[in-house]
Structure formats: structure tokens, C-alpha cells
Design a protein around this nucleic acid. Structure first.
Lengths: 249, 249
DNA sequence: CGTGTTATTGACCAACATCAAACTTAGTGG
DNA sequence: CCACTAAGTTTGATGTTGGTCAATAACACG
């Protein structure tokens, strides 16, 4: 699993992420490790890419927590997805040139910028990598569907429980958890904007989940006390994440 | 635009669809026209593919109206997308082998089944077609995001208006409209299941839109009386559909 | 003609939003 | 190390969008 090739930590992040959703051979790992990229630090609440832009490079999240969102007429905000280290949240700009939404850093974040040209070359020469990237965007679609089902048809309680399960498993597949504990560095207003709820209601439901001893939270960290209970509360079935390899700690 | 090659009507549908979202050269058109497929008729309300299956062929919608949905514990249903002739709603099964949702025919439908192996060959030999398919799945993601923003943050009225705008434009880009009139062969309960609303409320809002003279409806047909008014009501901005070529009737 | 969806209407209700204020926390600069 | 500030969290009171239930009317289809 650990590539024999020496690759920088940010290359490793990308490789680990892709290995969590598909099989890579040594050739592909080598090609990924050779991908040109340069690091960039981004402040909290700064956009990585903004709606309307047509980026010529994509950003790989190396450290931090990132989200995709859109501001609506009328002042509302909808968050569409969260991204962890290893994700390339604007990979799609390779084919959809003008961004129909923005991507922003929810914490101080380090990204690695990869020129589109380099990605195009990589995809042309390595069909397995092309398939991996495509597959990654398809998993993202599956996550959108899960969110749609939640916002459209589930109670606030189920939506929140579902999101906690999802972020926990995704973080775990990347080796970012410690036992049942994981970092969720987002505020309650942000949670609300992702789940179609008000911050006030998010707060009340979180209290309820704590009262029922499904979770505890200490600052930015969530501790899952009752994994099965939380899954039940969120009607959670992990198969949509299509995770192939999960260290399970 | 009209391919010089003689291709069957169902091949033409696929080619027309892909040309609505990207540029194809004569080589690609020829390759698409040679794609092996066989026709299959599907009854109203019959699943084309069901959750849990791992299909080895994908279906191209040739005629009819199809949706992607999931049944939830508790009896609810969420519809994730609608598909028109030219769409391959389960193209994703090429990379996500087990279906995390189902696809069903909302009207009597004719589909053309294409073996995955043939699609894999096509993609391997024709990078432009591979890009087109990937792009198509990315546009689908963009549509999911638009729905998420609607269900999460917009009123019932805006959601319904937005959906009408979306289906109208997609149908128009495929040459399936007559002026401002288009076929929307779905029931109010189905509309509700796609927008996270009850059938009763859908009914009331549709009446409101008719009262305001934004639309009229005759049976399964919707007539847009006031396109700009409808767009305004739905806070609709078409750019997320990434339509490149639109006959505009 | 029945018979089974679909559309429509009305009465009532609940989940969640909104508003406003108090409290907590983290960060900042003197 | 301590005010000071800004942001986030918590609480309570009140409001509203849209859900649920139930009944009737319109259709479509065999």
C-alpha cells in the first residue's frame, strides 16, 4: 500500500486518496508522484476558486478543510460538499471550464496547485489514472445524491447524523481519525448551510444527539459514542461512498 | 451539425445529445455511429436498473422520460434526476459497479442497451468521446448542485419554477420543444418527490404559477407564457447546464 | 360504464425559521 | 496578563412554510 517510490507528502496525499477508491499499479503511482505541483497557503475563509472563473490549474487539498458553495440571490448560502486532504475539489474545471460555484477554505489550508496541462497529459498517458479521476467525480455525484435525499426527505436529526457518519468514514479512509474521534472544523452556521437548516436548529439537534449519548464534541472534535446508534439515526448506509480500502484504524 | 454518416435514429439521439454539450469531429461521430446496441421497450413504472445491481451494459434513452430515484426507510422517495432521449442515465455504472439507486421509466420508454465492453473500447480508442462522457457526468453533477441549492434554500415556488426552466432548456437543446411548449409527462406526486415537497403543495404552487400567468398546462404539456418571469421566479441561471449548442427552435 | 390513478380543496398541524438576547470562546493588542 | 472585540453557541418566544389527513372531482383506460 505504501508506495515504494519516494514522493513528497502532498503527492502521497493524492495517491492515498485515489487508492482509497480504486486500485493503482506501480506505473500509475510513479506517474502521480511525478505530477508537477506547487504549494500555496490559503487563509481561513479565502476562496480557492470563485464562481465565474475559468481556472487553468486545479488545487489538491494537502492540509485543511475546504467546501464548495454558492451564494443565492436573497442572501442564502448552500454548501454542496466538504473536502479533505487528498481531494481535488475543482478537478471538474478540467472539463467544465467556467465555475458555476466557489470553493473556499474553512480552516487555514495548504493546497498544491496542478496545471491542467499536466493533468491532461497524465490522463492521456495513463488510462487507469483517467478512470480513477472519473470515478472520483462519480463518487462525488453519489454524495450529492445522498445529500439530496437527506435535505429532500429526512428530518433535521437524520440529516445531521448522516453527515457526521459520512465525514467520519471519509476521514477514516484517509487515515485522519483517532479511534471514533475526528476533526470537524466547521461552525454550526456552516453545518446549517450544508443541510438546508438554520444555525439555531442545528444547535438544538446537536444538543439532542449529545443528550442521547450518540456523540460528544470538544471544540472542533467530534467523538462518536454510539456508532450504530448514529448510523440508525441518520439512516446511513456507507455503500454510496464506494470506499474500497479503509484502514479502519 | 447533422452527421453525414448514416446512423440509426437511436445512434443519432446519442450523437445529438453529446453535440449539445461538446464538439465532436467526424471520427468520433463515426465511432459513435458504430456502437453496438439493441433496442428494448420498457413499460411505464418499470425499473431499467435497480439499486444493488451491477449492470454490464448501460442504457441509452431513445424515447420516453426516465428518472433516477431512491426509496428511503420510512417510505419516502427521492428523485435525483430526470432523463430525456439521448441521455445514458446509468453511464456511471461503468466505474461505480454496484448501483446505489434505481432508474425507472416514468412513461412507456424505448432504450438502447450498450455493452460496457463496447463503451470501454470506445473510450480507450477515442479520447474525445471519453472526455465527452466524463463531461456529461460532470454536467449531471452541476444539475445535482442546482437541485441541492433549491431544496436546501429556496421556496417551493422557486424550486418548481427552476425545475420547469431546467427541463424546458434541456428539452430544447435536444430539439424536443415546440416554441415555448414542452412535454413534462410527470405527475404532481413525482414532482414533489423530486423537489422535496408534498403532492398537495406542488398542486397549490402550480395553481399559483398559472394564476400569475407564468405558465399554462394542458395534460402533460407545459406552456411557458412568461419565460423571463418564470426565470425570475426560479432564480434561474442557465449556465450550470453548460449547454453549448441550442437550436432555440 | 366501472375502476384506479391523478388533481383539487379545505381544515388542521408540526417542523423548522426567525428574531432577539445572553453567554462563551478565541483572538488581539496594550 | 488583562481588557476588548468578534465570532460562535445557547436559550426563549413567536411565526410561517409546507406537511398530513381526508374528502371530492376529473380523467384515463379497459
Amino acid at each position: 500500500m505504501t508506495p515504494a517510490i519516494d514522493a513528497s507528502p502532498h503527492h502521497q496525499r493524492l495517491i492515498r486518496k485515489l487508492e482509497s477508491i480504486c486500485d493503482l499499479g506501480p506505473t500509475e503511482v510513479r506517474a502521480l508522484a511525478a505530477l508537477p505541483m506547487y504549494l500555496k497557503d490559503v487563509a481561513e475563509n479565502a476562496d480557492l476558486v470563485s464562481q465565474g472563473e475559468a481556472p487553468v490549474e486545479s488545487c489538491l487539498v494537502v492540509e485543511g478543510f475546504v467546501c464548495r458553495y454558492q451564494l443565492l440571490k436573497g442572501g442564502g448560502r448552500q454548501i454542496f460538499s466538504f473536502h479533505l486532504p487528498g481531494d481535488i475539489p475543482d478537478l471538474q474545471s478540467l472539463h467544465l471550464h467556467v465555475m458555476d460555484h466557489s470553493i473556499t477554505a474553512l480552516t487555514p489550508t495548504r493546497v498544491a496547485m496542478i496545471p491542467h496541462a499536466a493533468l491532461q497529459d497524465l490522463i492521456r498517458d495513463h488510462p487507469v489514472v483517467a478512470a480513477a479521476f472519473w470515478r472520483d467525480t462519480l463518487v462525488e455525484s453519489a454524495v450529492y445524491r445522498a445529500w439530496l435525499a437527506g435535505i429532500g426527505r429526512r428530518t433535521a436529526r437524520a440529516r445531521i447524523a448522516h453527515l457526521l457518519c459520512e465525514v467520519y468514514l471519509r476521514a477514516r479512509s484517509l487515515g485522519l481519525t483517532r479511534g471514533r474521534r475526528f476533526d470537524l472544523p466547521i461552525t454550526q452556521p456552516e453545518l446549517g448551510d450544508s443541510l438546508g437548516l438554520s444555525a439555531v436548529h442545528v444547535n438544538r439537534v446537536l444538543q439532542e444527539l449529545r443528550r442521547e449519548e450518540l456523540i460528544t464534541s470538544e471544540g472542533r472534535y467530534i467523538n462518536i459514542l454510539d456508532w450504530h446508534g448514529l448510523k440508525r439515526a441518520g439512516e446511513f448506509d456507507a455503500s454510496y461512498l464506494h470506499i474500497m480500502r479503509d484502514p479502519a484504524d
